[in-house]
Design a protein around this nucleic acid. Structure first.
Lengths: 189, 189
DNA sequence: GGGTGCATGTAATGGGTTACATGATTCT
DNA sequence: AGAATCATGTAACCCATTACATGCACCC
């Protein structure tokens, strides 16, 4: 809900634009689907937080351009001052790793490797965003945007570091299991 | 759903115990509420993935002790081998920081400071868990548990580092705004 | 006496994603 | 010819938390 208000302070936009902008800016730490965006914009308008203008288009449906109203700015400011409640995370990779003694280390290795790959790609994206932020037209919000970007970068780097470290260990475990050395084994299944 | 199966491989437990155990083990990256646990256990039993035994108690309701069935182990193994899908995160702190140009830097500072405090506390908890893991009875799963713990530690440390760095910057911004130096200002509101 | 912990469970509510529906234009 | 993009919106569905209900025991 408030993401919409926030982004509309930067520039008036349509619902579709908001979806695109979310993906390209806050997408790495916040997401909203269209099934959420359109109804929420209607609610915000009904409450007087935003107002809209219709723009005719040929072939395509009318574009509804939303802009933030005074009441909307107030609501945003109020929301910003409320302490964010700590998120309850859900990390499927860690959960699977936690129970990986019930499977083979090879599977765990695959999962971690996949994560390293995908997060490396995102780190690359971040570098591009960083350059864009320094070069493009200077918004007054830019310093704050950079802080969130930096957060993502540090977090990704810590994930990658952990990933490499963990892969080393998993490979050791896999090796130990393949070569029946000193420890006695029972065959499973 | 699968957390329940996973934890039941360690030891047969009641629904209540499962809730407690989740908080104390995977709680930092996975949560389930009782409103979820109890119905899910029933579904798992109906599907033949777990079985239960009633234990009479005086004063308290009967304890239903669940243990994992062969079919449950198979289901767990199948789930473990499926690649975890990347989570869609929702970080309210970052979202608020992103829009903090619409508020005062002081508010942002408060939010970040609060986060630093609470995450420091969790880091302390982790240290205790680490010691417990090294000392307590050695489960065969322990190496995997340590990996997830390590992940949490690295992530927290990266958050704290980012927090301090960000606080420095926010304080600079706050200072600049208080002393009207070279930059011309328009008064808002 | 009152709060907290044990112990189970259901119902209401809310938040969110996915799928569906429509239809023109542009790219491959 | 067909897929992707633009553009909006609704409905179905799923998942999850919160609140509610019950009741004893223990601690302060």
């Amino acid at each position: 809900m408030e993401v919409l208000l926030g982004l509309l302070t930067v520039e008036p936009m349509s619902g579709y634009d908001l979806g695109q902008t979310i993906r390209g800016s806050v997408g790495h730490f916040w997401n909203e689907s269209y099934g959420q965006i359109y109804p929420n914009l209607k609610k915000l308008e009904a409450g007087g937080f935003v107002k809209s203008e219709k723009k005719r288009q040929k072939g395509k449906p009318d574009r509804h351009i939303y802009s933030i109203a005074k009441k909307g700015r107030e609501r945003l400011a109020a929301w910003l001052s409320v302490a964010p409640q700590p998120e309850i995370p859900r990390n499927e990779l860690l959960l699977k790793l936690f129970f990986s003694a019930q499977a083979s280390p090879e599977i765990a290795i695959q999962h971690v490797e996949r994560m390293v790959k995908s997060e490396s790609a995102i780190l690359g994206e971040f570098k591009r965003i960083e350059e864009q932020l320094s070069k493009g037209k200077q918004y007054p919000d830019a310093p704050y945007w950079k802080m969130t970007l930096r957060s993502g970068q540090l977090e990704l780097k810590s994930h990658l570091r952990w990933g490499e470290e963990t892969l080393d260990e998993l490979r050791k475990i896999a090796k130990k299991q393949r070569s029946p050395s000193e420890t006695k084994k029972e065959k499973k299944h």
